[in-house]
């Protein structure tokens, strides 16, 4: 998934098709906590303006949804409580119409929570966009409920990334439960999708003022 996101270069293989690719859904990287919701939105919508134009969700709907959680466009990101933060970042990623959506494991768990039901519906809406022929989602979730709701094919990888199984979703789930030990399942459940964790802004501005 890190390769798909563009953070890591592939050591073999090649890209066969190019399309618009989401950042990891609900990912909190990218925006500075000092920015307001409106500034953050303006920034991302400028970068992905083509994806916003193709979206089935309007900007008004986006801000209306945020209002339901008492999130205002002038609120600073650092002032949001955890629930609001999770909601905002997930809503922001779903707003755009990408060709491929990437869903990390922990965010798939969040999407299946009760409070995220409206977001789940919106994601389903984006994925079933009839105007676009090539909508896909890639996830590394181990949440079977999420997989059954959003996926139709599965792939089981070995410890070195080799493909052990590739095919129908139910068969992939069955294969996984047969071959992978429960202990390692529990362990992998705790693995967070923490790519690009080093991409943080530094505030050191002493260089600019240090003339002599």
């Amino acid at each position: 998934m890190a390769i798909l996101s563009g953070f890591v270069h592939p050591i073999s293989g090649d890209f066969e098709a190019f399309g618009s690719l989401s950042w990891p859904l609900g990912g909190e990287g990218g925006l500075d906590s000092k920015l307001t919701i409106g500034q953050g939105f303006d920034f991302v919508s400028s970068i992905y303006s083509d994806c916003l134009e193709a979206s089935l969700i309007s900007v008004d709907d986006f801000f209306d949804m945020l209002h339901t959680r008492s999130i205002d466009s002038s609120t600073r990101l650092k002032d949001l409580v955890k629930e609001q933060k999770d909601f905002f970042y997930m809503m922001l990623s779903i707003l755009f119409s990408f060709d491929i959506y990437l869903v990390p494991s922990d965010r798939s768990k969040y999407l299946m929570a009760r409070e995220a039901r409206p977001l789940r519906n919106l994601l389903n809406k984006q994925l079933s966009n009839s105007n676009s022929s090539s909508k896909s989602m890639v996830t590394i979730s181990i949440n079977n409920r999420f997989k059954r709701e959003f996926c139709n094919r599965g792939m089981v990888l070995g410890p070195r990334g080799e493909i052990l199984f590739h095919g129908d979703l139910e068969e992939a789930i069955a294969y996984e439960s047969e071959t992978v030990k429960i202990a390692s399942e529990t362990e992998s459940d705790e693995i967070q999708f923490d790519i690009a964790g080093h991409l943080t802004n530094s505030d050191s501005s002493s260089d600019q003022n240090d003339v002599f």
Partner: peptide, 22 residues
Amino acid sequence: RNVAIKSLSGLKLKAPLYYSRI
């Protein structure tokens, strides 16, 4: 000078790289 010094200090603004288009 400003451009050179900023660059020599490394990219202080890194968070936007999170978005693959940047």
